[in-house]
Simulated assay, not measured.
Amino acid sequence: MPYLRFATGDRLRLDGEEMPGVVVALEVEGENSVESLPREGKAGDVHVLRGYRDFRVRITLRLAGPDPLAEARALQAKFAKSKTEPLRVVHPHLAARGVEKALFARLTTREEGGEEGVYAVLELVQTEPREALKEGNAAEAAALGQALAGARPVAGPPKGSAQAARNPSSPPKPPAYLEAFLQGRQAGLALGGGR
């Protein structure tokens, strides 16, 4: 898996190759996915939490070399190749937010007047490779299958617990009158106080 290593105030390094531009800012955005549903006949909406969206990472680069547009072309060409392949990203800020793998999402360039040059914003989206998700899901399903195959549902306290030691292992016997009634003898009623 290719890796992207960088530091604020330094250059991006994609698989060890130095990329054009200097990183001037890093922004990491993550938010809850909330759906608003209108309530009929009442003021306000009901807000329903749908989960957490993947993090979006924006890396701002200043392209201030002798030919900033050539640097922009080089960035576009390099990241266009990795559109479908996740990158392992290495930066302390991203590690603090839990972002380890990301996918190239967008490259935006902005030209400002004067000697500022060209700014590029490289946008990445947090991702997990499909193979890793498949392997994790398969391992989880196998573990669940093994647990269910060897276990029968049993009511009562776990074996070896203090509660299991206090409770008898055999089921309790019903009272004599109920046992007699269940066996079909009318005498069971007399034992219970009936006629």
Rank of each mutant, 00 (worst) to 15 (best):
V46W: 07
V46Q: 13
V46D: 10
V46P: 02
H47L: 11
H47F: 15
H47R: 14
H47M: 09
H47N: 10
H47I: 08
H47K: 15
V48R: 11
V48F: 08
L49V: 06
L49C: 04
L49K: 10
L49H: 12
L49F: 13
R50Q: 14
R50Y: 06
R50E: 15
G51L: 04
G51V: 06
G51T: 03
Y52H: 10
Y52I: 07
Y52F: 11
Y52A: 15
Y52M: 14
Y52W: 15
R53N: 13
R53H: 04
R53T: 05
R53Q: 11
D54I: 03
D54T: 08
D54S: 13
D54W: 07
F55M: 03
F55P: 02
F55D: 03
F55G: 02
F55H: 13
F55Y: 14
R56P: 07
V57N: 01
V57A: 01
V57H: 02
V57G: 00
R58P: 01
R58E: 01
R58D: 03
R58L: 02
I59H: 00
I59E: 01
I59W: 00
I59A: 00
T60I: 00
T60G: 00
T60F: 01
T60L: 00
L61C: 02
L61S: 02
R62L: 02
R62M: 01
R62K: 11
R62Q: 07
R62H: 02
L63Q: 07
L63A: 08
L63S: 05
L63M: 07
L63P: 08
A64R: 11
A64M: 12
A64F: 11
A64H: 10
A64S: 09
A64W: 04
G65C: 11
G65L: 08
G65D: 10
P66W: 12
P66S: 13
D67N: 14
D67K: 10
D67L: 08
P68W: 03
P68F: 05
P68D: 08
P68G: 10
P68I: 04
L69R: 10
L69Q: 12
A70R: 13
A70V: 08
A70Y: 11
A70T: 09
E71H: 13
E71F: 09
E71M: 07
E71I: 05
A72T: 06
A72R: 05
R73C: 07
R73P: 05
R73L: 12
R73H: 08
A74V: 04
A74C: 04
L75G: 01
L75E: 07
L75F: 04
L75D: 05
Q76R: 15
Q76E: 14
A77Q: 12
A77V: 13
A77G: 12
A77N: 07
A77I: 10
A77K: 09
A77S: 12
K78C: 11
K78H: 10
K78L: 11
K78M: 06
F79Q: 06
F79L: 05
F79E: 04
F79C: 02
F79S: 03
F79H: 04
F79G: 01
F79A: 02
A80D: 14
A80H: 14
A80I: 05
K81C: 10
S82G: 05
S82L: 15
S82M: 14
K83Y: 12
K83G: 06
K83D: 08
